[in-house]
Computed example of a mutant assay.
Amino acid sequence: MTLRILHIGKFYPPHRGGMEVFLADLVNAQRQAGIDAAALVHGTPEAGDPPG
């Protein structure tokens, strides 16, 4: 069974801010650890965003 985590936030990089950078780093680290992690944030997807 794969662990699944959904983070809910206000923004995601490339928006600048400490929380946004931390959220991106957290999702990437969890994915590298084999966790099915995703972030649900406000805004329109941009080029380079990770798949939902």
Rank of each mutant, 00 (worst) to 15 (best):
I35C: 02
H15Q: 14
N28P: 01
A29K: 12
A39C: 15
A47H: 04
I35E: 06
I35H: 00
G48P: 01
P50D: 12
A39R: 08
E46K: 13
V21W: 07
H7T: 11
Q30G: 04
V41N: 01
M1P: 00
M19K: 01
L6D: 05
G9T: 15
L26V: 09
H7M: 15
A24D: 12
N28A: 15
D25Q: 14
D25L: 07
G52S: 10
A47T: 10
D25W: 08
A33K: 05
A33Q: 11
A38R: 15
F22I: 10
D36A: 07
N28S: 13
P45I: 00
P51F: 10
M19E: 09
A33W: 05
L40K: 08
R4G: 01
L3G: 06
A39M: 14
I5S: 09
L6H: 02
L6C: 12
D49A: 14
I5V: 15
E20D: 09
Q30W: 12
A24G: 05
D25H: 11
K10W: 15
P13F: 08
P45L: 00
P45H: 00
G17Y: 11
M1A: 14
L40E: 11
A24P: 06
E46I: 10
D49N: 09
F11M: 03
M19Q: 09
F22M: 13
A47R: 06
R4C: 01
Y12K: 03
Y12D: 03
F22D: 04
P45G: 01
I5Q: 11
I35Y: 01
R31N: 03
F22Y: 15
L6Q: 03
Q32H: 11
A47N: 04
R4N: 03
I5L: 15
P51R: 13
A38L: 03
R31H: 05
